[in-house]
């Protein structure tokens, strides 16, 4: 499965020239958020290509920081979590908010019916 994720990320980045968010992996592979974060890290560690990372750092006290300039990042003791949020091949990171159907970490308490035709799940390509 990990090879499939890496392939997916690579194609999205270099063939389609698109940003890849960890939520895209959740949508594509129906992963949970933790699984998707792990996959992002794995790709980060293994890829030979040059990609820009966008890191989300969570601090104690409710601060959530979006870090694009990794060179100037200052570690601190009050960081409670950090993960790779996105990969991008371009200097300017731009996110497009698209409807998604990723697995829910928190389910709405109300009935929720989604149209069947909306955001069809793309078939996973077999190796």
């Amino acid at each position: 499965m990990s090879e499939d994720v890496g392939k997916f990320i690579h194609e999205r980045l270099f063939n389609d020239c698109e940003v890849v968010l960890y939520t895209d992996i959740m949508t594509q592979f129906q992963y949970t958020n933790n699984q998707a974060k792990k996959e992002m890290y794995k790709y980060y560690k293994t890829t030979k290509s040059k990609v820009n990372c966008v890191i989300v750092c969570c601090y104690a006290g409710g601060l959530i920081s979006i870090i694009q300039d990794l060179a100037n990042f200052e570690p601190s003791d009050d960081i409670v979590d950090a993960f790779i949020y996105a990969f991008s091949t371009m200097e300017q990171f731009t996110v497009v908010n698209k409807p998604n159907s990723r697995p829910l970490a928190i389910e709405n308490a109300f009935e929720f019916v989604q149209k069947a035709s909306a955001a069809p799940v793309e078939a996973v390509r077999e190796p």
Partner: peptide, 22 residues
Amino acid sequence: MDSILQRFNESRSDEGAEPILR
């Protein structure tokens, strides 16, 4: 940065969690 990412990544749960009801 790498060390921070690695540290938190290792402590992340591997299992697929069930959704929590709002």
